[in-house]
């Protein structure tokens, strides 16, 4: 029971993800088949839909933008600050910080992760592993959006008796970029507004918020 409670955040979000993904597949299928009926095309079953490029591109385009958002946030908050925001380091503390502050190099502890105790290259790679993995998922999802988006887009072009686009042609097409940019702008808005809202607004009990009585100008240390 304690194990579950100690990991409740990751478990809850994982379950919500699975429920939402399942729901997306069900209503997505209904939407797809409704369009198919209107266009006089054959309806498809659930398995055919979740293995279709149409479902794949919808999933990938949202994934890539979320991972871009977190990658940018993790990286930019190393150097950039927002005075008074619980999402920021205090002004003047921007940068990679010293080995002492980061408990690495000569300041590694017996309980530090193995790559940190190993030092050298391992420690260097490990010190950017969160950004590396998040950026990697962003790039892979974005590439997946391109690959699946092209197939889904070409399906429509073939129906309209137009030539299919090559991958290069699709990656420079308005369809690819409108799917990309409509997601990027919403993520950037959410992150930017969160950074500044957290200066003046509070949620009692949340580590994402300052203490309710904390002054607006106070930037809490991480």
């Amino acid at each position: 029971m304690r194990q579950i409670r100690d990991n409740s955040l990751s478990i809850a979000f994982g379950l919500l993800l699975l429920i939402t993904l399942a729901a997306q597949s069900i209503v997505g299928l209904a939407d797809y088949n409704s369009s198919a009926r209107t266009d006089g095309l054959a309806e498809i079953d659930w398995w055919r839909y979740i293995t279709s490029s149409s479902f794949a591109v919808d999933v990938a385009e949202n994934w890539q933008s979320e991972y871009l958002q977190f990658t940018l946030y993790i990286l930019l908050t190393v150097w950039l600050v927002q005075r008074g925001s619980s999402e920021s380091k205090p002004p003047g503390e921007g940068g990679l910080e010293s080995d002492r502050e980061q408990r690495m190099g000569a300041f590694a502890e017996p309980e530090s992760p193995a790559p940190v105790r190993a030092g050298g290259w391992w420690s260097g790679i490990y010190s950017a592993s969160l950004t590396t993995v998040m950026a990697g998922i962003f790039l892979l999802s974005w590439a997946a959006q391109g690959v699946a988006g092209r197939v889904a887009f070409n399906e429509g072009r073939l129906r309209d008796q137009l030539d299919p686009l090559s991958l290069g042609g699709y990656l420079t097409s308005p369809d690819f970029w409108v799917r990309t940019l409509q997601n990027w702008q919403s993520e950037l808005l959410a992150v930017g507004s969160m950074a500044i809202f957290a200066v003046f607004l509070r949620q009692r009990g949340s580590p994402e918020s300052k203490e309710v009585g904390a002054p607006h100008s106070e930037t809490p240390p991480p």
């Binding site: 100690d6 990751s10 794949a56 994934w63 998922i137 997946a144 197939v151």
Partner: peptide
Amino acid sequence: MRLARALFIGYLALIVLVLAAIFVIGALAR
């Protein structure tokens, strides 16, 4: 930490498997 490690691997595996499936779907032009 056992459950935490399992969740870490689980999330990574889900992401990798779904992305791999999407690339396969794209390659098969479904």
